[in-house]
Design a protein around this nucleic acid. Structure first.
Lengths: 304, 304
DNA sequence: ACATGTTGATATGTTTTAGATATAAATATG
DNA sequence: CATATTTATATCTAAAACATATCAACATGT
C-alpha cells in the first residue's frame, strides 16, 4: 500500500464517483479503477459498491475511511515539522554566555530579539567563562555562545565579532585616587596589585589588561587571581588590589568599589558570538544572524 | 511522497546505517540512497548526516521522525478495520423480531450466541409485525429480521427457515372446555369467534389458523381483530372469543387464559430469518449463519 | 605509513508499474 | 428504444523503482 492508494481512495469517497475523482486527481479514469482494484485486493475486500451512477462506500470502505482520512493532514504536518526544524524555527538553543558579558545591555537585547523572532525554540542559557563555553560547544553541550574571543581559539569554532568595549578601572572607594572622579592615568597604578582572571580561563580579557599596562610602559603586578567577575569586585572591595574590567561592569554597583575611566591609554575588549564550525545547529546560525543584525543596528546608532 | 519513503526513512533512522537498512528492506543500497535523496529534495532539507560509519538524524530528520513514526501502525490498523468490517466483526446489526416470536426460547438463544460470537457489533432490536419488518429491510431501516415467512414475500428478501412450531388453543379459563386439560378437538370450536391478527399484517399466522379450521372441516368465525399477541390474549381473557396461537405463547401466563393442545388436526407455523437479497450487510449474513447453526443444533437435539 | 574494509554516492542498464488511449459492458434516462 | 451515463477491460507507453558495477571518502588495523 502506498499513499497514492489512500489519496485515490479518499478522492473517490468524497466525489462518490470514479470519473470525477480521476479528473480531480489529474489522471484518467482507468488507472484510478486499477489502483483501487489493487488496494481492494490487498485488503481482501471491496471498498466501494459500483453503481451506474457512481460509487459508494461499503461497510469495509467506511471503516477504512475513518482510519485513513487524517493521513493527508498528518503527512503535511510531518513535512512542515521537518521544514520548520530545518529553518531553526523549532527545536532548542543551548546558549552559553560568558560571565563578564551578561551585564552588557546589548546581550539581553539580543536574547529578547531572538525569542521574539523564534518563539517556538526552547532556549536554555548557561553562564561560564569563555574557555568552558568553547569546550561546551565542542562537546555538544552548547549550540552557541557569547564570549570574549581569543586568537588561539581552535579553528573548530566559528567566531563572529559583535562589539568592542573599553576597560575601566575598579578601585576600592577608600583608595586615594578615588577622591577625584576624573580619568586616571595608568602610570599612577604601576605599584598596585592587579586582580585578574587567570589567563587560562579568559585569554582575551587577561591579555587586554596586560596590553594596557604595556602601552603605559610598565608590567602589572599580578595580585590575587579570581575566576569570576563577582569575585573580582569583592576582592577590590576588600582592598586586595585594583582591577581593569569591561565598562559594562559599571552596571554593577558593589559597596566599596568605584569605577574610573582610563586617562591616557586606549583599551578594548571584544564580545563575539561563536558556534561550532562542523555541524552548527540551525538555531545557532539563526542566533548568530540576530547578533549580526543587532550589531548593524548598534553601529548605525553610534554613527549618528 | 509515498509510504515507501516513510518506510525507508524509518528503517535508516532505526539502523543508523544505509547499507544495513537496505538489506533489512530487501533492496540494494543505491536505490535506498536515491529514494532518501528524493524525499530530502521534496522536503527541501537533509534528513540525515552521512558519516563514514553510518547516518544519523539531522534536527529536521528528528522532527520528521516524530511525526511519521506512528504511520506504519496506523496503516496496519486501517487495514484491519476494513477487514473486520468486511467479516462483519464490527459495525452494526439492526435486527427486527416479530412480536409472536420474541417469546420462543430459541430466539434469545440465537441473539445470545450472536453477541458472544460478534461482541464488537452494535446490536439494536426492534419488535414489529412481519409486514413492517419486511418493509423495514427493503427501506434500509433493518438489516435482518426473525419473522413468520409468507410465500408472497417479495423476491427482494432472502428467507431461510429456522423452526416450525405447533399452534395451541387459547381459552378463557371460565370456558366449559377449559375444565379438562386434555387436547381439544377443533370441531368443538366451530361456533366460537376466533380472535386473529389481520391477514394484512401477519399473513402466515392468519393463514395457518384458517388452514387448521379448514382441515377440521369448518370456516372459522372471525371475531375481534388484534394487531399484537398481547392484545389477543387479553381479549381472550375478556371472553371475547378464543384464539389459536404459537405454542411458545405458553410461556406467557395471562390471568384468565388457559392453553390447550389441538387434538385432531396437524398444524404448524414457521419462524425464519430474513435479510435483503440485494446488498445484505455482512452482520446480517453472519446473523443468518448463527441461525442456521442454531437450527442444526436444535434438530440434532430433537432427533435424539 | 599504507593497505584494507567500511561507509554512502554515482553511473548506467533492466524491469516493474503507473498511467494513457481506445473500447466494451452495464444501466439509467429521455 | 436510442442515448448518455457509469465502471471495467485490453493494450501500449513512459516513468520510476531497483539492480549491478564502480567510485570516493574515511576509519582502522597491521
Amino acid at each position: 500500500m502506498e499513499l497514492r492508494h489512500i489519496r485515490y481512495f479518499l478522492a473517490i469517497a468524497e466525489e462518490k464517483n470514479f470519473t470525477r475523482a480521476a479528473s480531480k486527481l489529474h489522471i484518467a479514469q482507468p488507472p484510478l479503477s486499477q489502483q483501487i482494484k489493487d488496494l481492494e485486493y490487498e485488503l481482501g475486500t471491496p471498498l466501494f459498491h459500483r453503481t451506474p451512477h457512481g460509487a459508494e462506500l461499503t461497510d469495509a470502505g467506511a471503516a477504512f475511511f475513518e482510519a485513513v482520512k487524517v493521513l493527508p493532514l498528518q503527512i503535511r504536518q510531518a513535512k512542515e515539522a521537518a521544514q520548520k526544524a530545518a529553518k531553526g524555527e523549532t527545536g532548542k538553543l543551548r546558549l552559553g554566555v560568558t560571565g563578564t558579558a551578561a551585564l552588557h545591555p546589548a546581550i539581553p537585547a539580543v536574547i529578547r530579539q531572538f525569542r521574539r523572532r523564534y518563539p517556538e525554540v526552547e532556549l536554555t542559557i548557561e553562564e561560564a567563562n569563555s574557555l568552558a563555553l568553547a569546550q561546551g560547544m565542542l562537546t555538544d553541550r552548547l549550540d552557541a555562545a557569547i564570549l570574549r574571543p581569543s586568537d588561539p581559539d581552535p579553528k573548530t569554532l566559528t567566531i563572529e565579532h559583535f562589539l568592542t568595549e573599553q576597560l575601566v578601572i575598579a578601585l576600592p572607594s577608600a583608595h586615594p585616587l578615588a577622591r577625584d572622579t576624573n580619568a586616571i592615568n595608568m602610570l599612577a597604578l604601576q605599584q598596585e596589585p592587579f586582580i585578574m582572571t587567570p589567563r587560562s580561563l579568559a585569554v582575551s580579557l587577561h591579555d587586554a589588561v596586560v596590553a594596557v599596562c604595556h602601552a603605559a610602559g610598565f608590567e602589572p603586578i599580578e595580585g590575587q587571581a579570581a575566576p569570576q567577575i563577582a569575585s573580582i569586585l569583592s576582592m577590590v572591595s576588600a582592598e586586595l588590589g585594583i582591577s581593569l574590567v569591561p565598562e559594562s561592569m559599571r552596571q554593577l554597583s558593589v559597596k566599596g568599589v568605584v569605577f574610573r575611566s582610563i586617562g591616557d591609554t586606549a583599551s578594548k575588549v571584544e564580545l563575539a558570538v561563536a558556534y561550532p564550525s562542523l555541524h552548527p545547529s540551525q538555531p545557532a546560525l539563526n542566533f548568530a544572524a540576530v547578533v549580526r543584525q543587532q550589531k548593524s543596528a548598534r553601529e548605525a546608532l553610534l554613527a549618528e
